[in-house]
Lab assay of single mutants.
Amino acid sequence: LQLFIKTLTGKTSTVEMEPSDTIENLKAKIQDKEGIPPDQQRLIFAGKQLEDGRTLSDYNIQKESTLHLVL
Rank of each mutant, 00 (worst) to 15 (best):
Q41H: 03
P19R: 09
I36C: 04
T7P: 05
L1Q: 03
T12R: 06
E18S: 13
L26F: 02
L56V: 05
L8C: 15
K6Q: 11
D58F: 14
T12V: 14
Q31G: 09
L69N: 01
Q2T: 15
D21G: 09
L43S: 00
E51G: 04
D32Y: 10
R54T: 06
L43F: 07
S57Q: 13
E64T: 08
N60P: 04
P37V: 05
G10R: 04
E24Q: 12
S57A: 14
Y59D: 01
T55I: 08
T55Y: 06
F45L: 05
Q49C: 10
D58N: 05
L26P: 00
Q62G: 13
Q40T: 08
I30P: 00
L1N: 04
Q40I: 11
N25Q: 15
D58G: 04
K27N: 01
S20M: 10
K11M: 11
G53H: 14
Q40L: 11
P37E: 06
G10M: 03
N60C: 04
T55S: 09
I5D: 01
S57G: 09
Q40V: 10
G53L: 08
L1K: 04
P19E: 08
T14R: 11
L8A: 13
L56N: 01
P38M: 15
E64Y: 15
D39T: 10
A46L: 13
E34W: 15
T9V: 08
E51N: 06
T14P: 05
G53D: 10
Q62K: 12
K48G: 06
T9E: 13
K33V: 12
L71N: 07
T55H: 06
K27Y: 03
G47M: 03
A28G: 08
T66H: 15
A46N: 15
S13D: 05
S20E: 11
T22V: 05
E64P: 05
L26R: 00
R42P: 00
L67P: 02
K63T: 15
K48Y: 08
R54M: 13
D52W: 03
T22I: 04
E16F: 15
Q41T: 05
R54S: 06
V70W: 11
K33E: 08
L1A: 04
R54I: 05
I23H: 01
K63M: 13
K6P: 02
P19F: 09
T22W: 04
T22Y: 08
L43D: 00
N25M: 15
D39F: 11
S20D: 12
L69A: 02
A28D: 06
D32I: 13
M17T: 05
K11S: 10
K27I: 03
I23M: 02
D52N: 11
L69P: 00
T66P: 02
E51F: 06
E18Y: 14
D21P: 00
Q40G: 05
K11N: 10
N60H: 09
I5F: 04
I44S: 08
L43P: 01
P37Q: 06
F45R: 02
Q62R: 10
G35K: 06
T22S: 07
T55Q: 08
A46V: 06
E24D: 09
D21Y: 04
D21I: 03
G53E: 10
E18K: 13
I44T: 08
G10H: 04
L69T: 01
I5N: 01
N60V: 04
T9W: 14
I30T: 01
L50K: 00
T7K: 07
S65T: 09
P37H: 11
E34C: 14
P38N: 06
T9A: 12
K29S: 05
F4V: 11
P37T: 05
K6A: 07
L43I: 13
L8M: 13
T55E: 03
G10Y: 03
P37F: 05
E34N: 10
K33Q: 13
L43V: 05
Q31S: 12
L71Y: 08
K29C: 05
E64W: 15
D52F: 04
T55G: 03
G47R: 03
G47K: 04
D21C: 04
D32L: 14
I36V: 10
L71F: 10
E18P: 04
L69C: 01
D52M: 06
K63V: 07
L26V: 07
L8F: 11
N60A: 08
E24T: 08
P38V: 15
H68P: 01
D21M: 08
D58P: 00
G53N: 12
L69I: 06
A46G: 12
K63I: 06
N60T: 04
N60E: 07
Q62A: 10
E34Q: 11
K33F: 10
I23T: 03
S65H: 06
T7Y: 14
D58E: 11
V15H: 05
L67V: 13
L67A: 02
K11V: 10
I23V: 12
V70L: 14
T14V: 14
K29A: 10
H68M: 14
G35S: 05
E16H: 13
L1D: 03
Q49V: 15
K11T: 10
L26C: 00
Q41R: 01
L56R: 00
E16W: 15
I23D: 01
Q49F: 14
Y59T: 01
V70C: 07
S13N: 08
T7C: 13
T9Y: 13
Q40M: 12
D52C: 05
Y59G: 00
Q31K: 10
E18T: 10
D21Q: 07
K48H: 12
G10P: 02
R42K: 12
P38C: 07
Y59S: 03
L67M: 05
P19N: 07
G47F: 04
F4Y: 13
L1Y: 10
K29G: 02
L26S: 00
S65R: 03
G47P: 01
I61G: 01
F45V: 03
G10S: 03
Q2E: 08
Y59E: 03
N60S: 09
T22G: 03
I61Y: 00
L69E: 00
L26A: 01
T7L: 15
L3A: 01
E16V: 13
H68V: 14
L69F: 03
Q62I: 12
D32C: 07
I61Q: 02
T12D: 04
K27L: 04
H68G: 04
E64N: 15
I44V: 08
K11A: 10
S57N: 10
D21W: 06
L43H: 01
F45W: 09
K63H: 15
V15P: 00
A28E: 09
L8H: 13
D52H: 06
T12G: 06
P19M: 09
Y59C: 01
E51H: 08
L71V: 13
D21K: 04
Q2L: 15
P37C: 05
I44Q: 05
A28P: 00
K29Q: 06
G47A: 03
S57W: 07
D58H: 10
K6C: 11
F4M: 08
P38K: 15
E16P: 05
K6S: 07
E18Q: 13
L71C: 06
L26H: 00
P38L: 12
R54V: 05
L3M: 05
T14Q: 10
D58A: 05
I44C: 10
G35C: 04
K11E: 11
K11Y: 13
T55P: 06
F45G: 02
S65W: 03
I23C: 00
I61N: 02
R42N: 11
Q49D: 13
V15M: 09
G53V: 06
L3N: 02
L50I: 04
K29F: 06
V70R: 09
P37D: 07
L67Q: 01
L69V: 06
E34H: 14
F45D: 01
D58V: 03
I5K: 00
D32P: 02
E64A: 12
G47E: 05
